[in-house]
């Protein structure tokens, strides 16, 4: 397995180059020159030209043969593509269009609060949903099962916004159990995260329980479960030892796919509870056509996806002996 991981990691740069080519195509070739847009309304031609220079749109797309003939062979790389490439590899995504802040520091600053919010939210939802679905699978077809499914559908149809507004109003304002709004870095800030995390877990449960319930139902009727029961094994051990490990493949697929999005934060939660994460960064960047940020986020998420896929394969092999890594 180790050699497989090493081999896959060696492929990763190739995939990253692929990602770079795609983002380059999207942001440089298809999107084209955004200098005029960046210069803003009422901008003069000079301002636009200045932006063009700053953003590198004055350079040729791939090969700078002109510069090469003037400044030597190496200048052939003084092209949009190679700058795009170099910037990504050195994690230098320039400065944001609107805030003029360094994109890399925006990402670094936002990642911590976002992950502080999304990771507990995600794990909380996962563990609760898996546990509920395991036990629900056990009583499939019963009134309890039906009520849980109905509750899930209701939960899913409840707009997250409404839920957040209610939760904030009721638990934070009316009952004063939690702070309404705020953020502090470090452990001092933990109190600000409790309510948003709980709301996120609650909101995520409906969909997750429904998904995992289906996964569990596929397995609960499996013959090996009956075998385990016939051996005299108790229910929790049947569920957690026998069923869960078999149900891990779809769970892992879902989990690993979700991980890169943890970095995107949680837009509404962050806005309502004042967590300065990445949730709004991407949305705002799209709204403001801040291609510096969009490009950086796309790149980071893509790389996380590549790594996530590797992690998926490794996890598959870890939970299922029938999967071999070759």
């Amino acid at each position: 397995m180790f050699s497989y991981i090493v081999r896959r990691l060696l492929y990763t740069p190739l995939v990253v180059i692929g990602v770079l080519i795609v983002t380059f195509m999207l942001f440089r070739v298809v999107q084209g020159d955004v200098s005029a847009e960046y210069a803003g309304k009422n901008a003069s031609a000079e301002t636009i030209a200045e932006y063009r220079k700053e953003l590198g749109f004055d350079k040729p797309l791939f090969i700078n043969s002109e510069a090469a003939s003037e400044r030597g062979v190496l200048a052939v790389f003084d092209s949009q593509f190679f700058h795009h490439f170099k910037n990504a590899v050195t994690l230098d995504f320039g400065r944001a269009r609107v805030s003029k802040q360094k994109v890399s520091s925006l990402l670094a600053e936002g990642a911590v609060p976002s992950l502080t919010l999304t990771v507990p939210m995600f794990l909380g939802t996962l563990i609760t949903a898996v546990t509920i679905s395991l036990f629900i699978a056990l009583v499939r077809g019963s009134t309890l099962d039906t009520s849980v499914v109905v509750a899930c559908v209701c939960g899913m149809s409840l707009p997250f916004l409404a839920l957040i507004m209610f939760g904030q109003y009721f638990f934070a304002y009316k009952l004063e159990w939690f702070p309404v709004f705020g953020y502090e870095p470090g452990f001092a800030g933990a109190k600000y995260f409790v309510l948003p995390v709980l709301m996120g877990v609650f909101a995520g449960l409906g969909g997750d329980v429904r998904f995992y319930r289906t996964v569990m139902l596929d397995e609960i009727n499996a013959d090996y479960i009956r075998t385990a029961k016939a051996k005299g094994q108790n229910t929790p051990r049947i569920l957690y030892r026998h069923l869960l490990k078999n149900a891990m493949i779809p769970i892992i697929s879902k989990v690993v796919l979700a991980i890169p999005f943890l970095f995107l934060g949680s837009l509404l939660t962050e806005r309502f509870f004042g967590i300065p994460g990445l949730g709004y960064l991407m949305v705002e960047a799209i709204g403001q056509r801040d291609f510096q940020i969009i490009n950086a986020m796309t790149f980071v998420i893509s790389v996380l996806f590549v790594l996530g896929n590797l992690a998926t394969d490794v996890c598959y092999a870890l939970v299922d002996p029938r999967v071999t890594l070759n």
Partner: peptide, 18 residues
């Protein structure tokens, strides 16, 4: 200065006297 982009938390913070 707190940056509160949503109406509700801004309103609640205000009514709370914060």
């Amino acid at each position: 200065l707190l940056i509160i982009e949503e109406d509700q938390p801004r309103w609640l913070k205000f009514v709370q006297g914060d």
